[in-house]
């Protein structure tokens, strides 16, 4: 099976001089098509930083990152912007929707950024909203939605540009476990249906059975088994 995302000995250091902190200490990970990977670990271990580096939001200090067949470790800000727009979908911890856009416009923003035709985009947006059970809310603003609806909208938005991989940072943190579970279930279903891939950072042990694989982040290193049980 083909790799959607590959990280090879990726390191990330913050600060300079005496203040240097090595947050990622050599991370190697492969995510294959159709795979849904969960990342768990204690607070401050570097999960969000890992996600930012994998998602082209931050450049690594060293190491190689491949998205599809493209090496993105040496690209500039502008190119990274394009990579994020085309290949990556983000679901943030607090849905981070744009307050003045309706649910439907949240999705239509992406084709707008890519200068794509609106007619086709509208169809795609509507079908996504239908699958995520949001069609009746499509003209509502984020402030009128429940937490779960917001999170589902964020997931729909992440799928909108047909990305190769979805990166989600604690998408269920603001939801009760039942809603949280249905949101994650949706994410898992979409990954399988579209033959894409996803990485989800979570604190919630109860979601892990929905994922294909769980990796453990501890002090800037990824392991396939937790060191302390």
């Amino acid at each position: 099976m083909e790799n959607k995302l590959m990280l090879q000995d990726v390191k990330k250091t913050f600060g300079d001089g005496d203040q240097q902190v090595e947050v990622l200490k050599g991370i190697t990970l492969e995510v294959k098509t159709g795979e849904f990977v969960a990342v768990v670990g204690p607070s401050g271990s570097g999960k969000s930083t890992f996600l930012s580096v994998a998602g082209a939001l931050l450049s690594p200090t060293s190491g190689r990152i491949m998205i599809g067949n493209q090496d993105i470790s040496t690209l500039g800000t502008k190119e990274l912007n394009q990579i994020r727009l085309k290949y990556i979908g983000f679901v943030f911890q607090s849905a981070n929707l744009i307050p003045y856009l309706t649910v439907r416009d949240q999705l239509l923003l992406l084709p707008e950024l890519e200068h794509q035709k609106h007619k086709e985009a509208e169809k795609i947006a509507d079908s996504l909203l239908e699958r995520l059970g949001l069609l009746h809310r499509k003209n509502h603003y984020p402030e009128q939605l429940s937490g779960g609806e917001r999170q589902r909208t964020a997931i729909a938005r992440a799928w909108m540009n047909d990305p190769e991989i979805i990166l989600a940072d604690e998408p269920t943190a603001s939801l009760d476990s039942e809603r949280g579970r249905s949101v994650v279930q949706m994410l898992a279903d979409e990954v399988k249906l579209r033959e894409k891939a996803a990485i989800m950072v979570t604190h919630d042990q109860r979601m892990l059975d929905l994922c294909d694989r769980v990796v453990y982040m501890e002090d800037g290193r990824l392991m396939s088994h937790p060191s302390v049980l």
């Binding site: 998602g55 939001l57 502008k78 912007n81 394009q82 994020r84 727009l85 085309k86 983000f90 943030f92 981070n96 744009i98 307050p99 923003l109 992406l110 950024l113 890519e114 938005r157 540009n161």
Partner: peptide
């Protein structure tokens, strides 16, 4: 600021 950060994260260019 936060909103613009999100927009940039999902791929909006500074120019836009």
């Amino acid at each position: 600021v936060n909103q613009f950060g999100v927009l940039k994260a999902i791929g909006a260019q500074s120019g836009y």
